[in-house]
């Protein structure tokens, strides 16, 4: 039985701008959890700093709003302690590709069983529109009157170069597809990375709904090879959305821990006093 979306609502009013992509993303997260029958208290979402992070107190789940760039390691620490709780890390393009880029790469190569949702609105919006690594090269931005002087990072290309076990791309203008992507990402056993292209009507007017509508094409099914997936995410004229690439052959980090293979409990169940007398024999 799906859980109604209202169960994930609380009384706190959203503070996002009118037309902000975060409304749809937030609803899609709630809808995906509900349809997968994952109750609010079976979920933990870590939030970053920025507009995506401002959603932390506007959803009824277990949540931890941490620091800028750190929602991924915070989610990993949470996941390793208790795998019975579904863990999602939300983060913006600023936090993910600047302050916390190392965490993204290492999370993918470790393949923890968590879901990472990268909200890509191509700027630091909460601090009023500075350039991020996804802002187009040459675009005029806050404090950069002659345009940003660096090339941009393509999130899909970056993620695929780290050999992920799951990569998908969604769009805040299509919350139904986004819900399906989130559901697949949560169900996938391993580190699922989802890039969400997000409209920002205040600081990224160029990437409007119309602009996206002209370019977006849905993928029917994931690409079969990582090279095809890379070619697909690098397309300029079209933006492909959907599940881009999956590889179910990569074991998760936890499943590779030899000393945890036969354990039937989670780390949270194991806090008690341990007798060290046998270990002390080695010091005699």
């Amino acid at each position: 039985m799906p859980i109604p979306i209202t169960q994930y609502n609380n009384e706190v009013k959203p503070t996002w701008c009118k037309g902000c992509g975060n409304y749809a993303i937030h609803i899609a997260i709630k809808k995906a959890l509900g349809e997968l029958d994952i109750a609010p208290n079976q979920t933990l979402i870590t939030f970053d700093i920025g507009c995506s992070g401002n959603g932390a107190d506007k959803i009824n789940v277990n949540a931890f709003k941490g620091l800028h760039g750190r929602s991924i390691p915070l989610a990993i620490g949470s996941h390793l302690a208790n795998r019975k709780i579904t863990v999602l890390a939300t983060i913006g393009d600023g936090g993910c590709l600047h302050e916390g880029l190392d965490h993204l790469i290492h999370a993918i190569r470790s393949n923890y069983d968590i879901t990472i949702l990268i909200h890509n609105n191509q700027n630091f919006a909460l601090t009023t529109g500075q350039a991020t690594a996804t802002t187009l090269e040459g675009k005029e931005m806050y404090g950069l009157p002659d345009g940003r002087p660096e090339r941009e990072i393509n999130i899909g290309e970056l993620v695929l170069s780290s050999k992920p076990s799951f990569f998908a791309r969604g769009y805040s203008g299509d919350p139904l597809q986004l819900t399906d992507i989130f559901k697949a990402a949560i169900k996938h056993k391993g580190c699922s990375v989802v890039e969400i292209m997000q409209t920002c009507p205040t600081y990224n007017r160029e990437s409007s709904l119309e602009w996206f509508t002209e370019r977006i094409e849905k993928l029917e099914k994931p690409l079969l090879t990582i090279n095809d997936a890379r070619d697909t995410v690098l397309m300029h004229e079209k933006i492909k959305t959907g599940i881009i690439y999956t590889d179910n052959s990569i074991p998760t980090f936890y499943d590779r821990l030899e000393n945890r293979k036969n354990s039937t409990t989670e780390l949270i169940d194991e806090v008690k006093q341990y007798d060290i007398s046998k270990l002390l024999e080695d010091f005699k």
């Binding site: 989610a75 990993i76 620490g77 949470s78």
Partner: peptide, 13 residues
């Protein structure tokens, strides 16, 4: 961060 996440969930790290 891993310590903070794990401790918050209720184990000791």
């Amino acid at each position: 961060q891993l310590v903070m996440g794990s401790m918050n969930m209720g184990t000791r790290a």
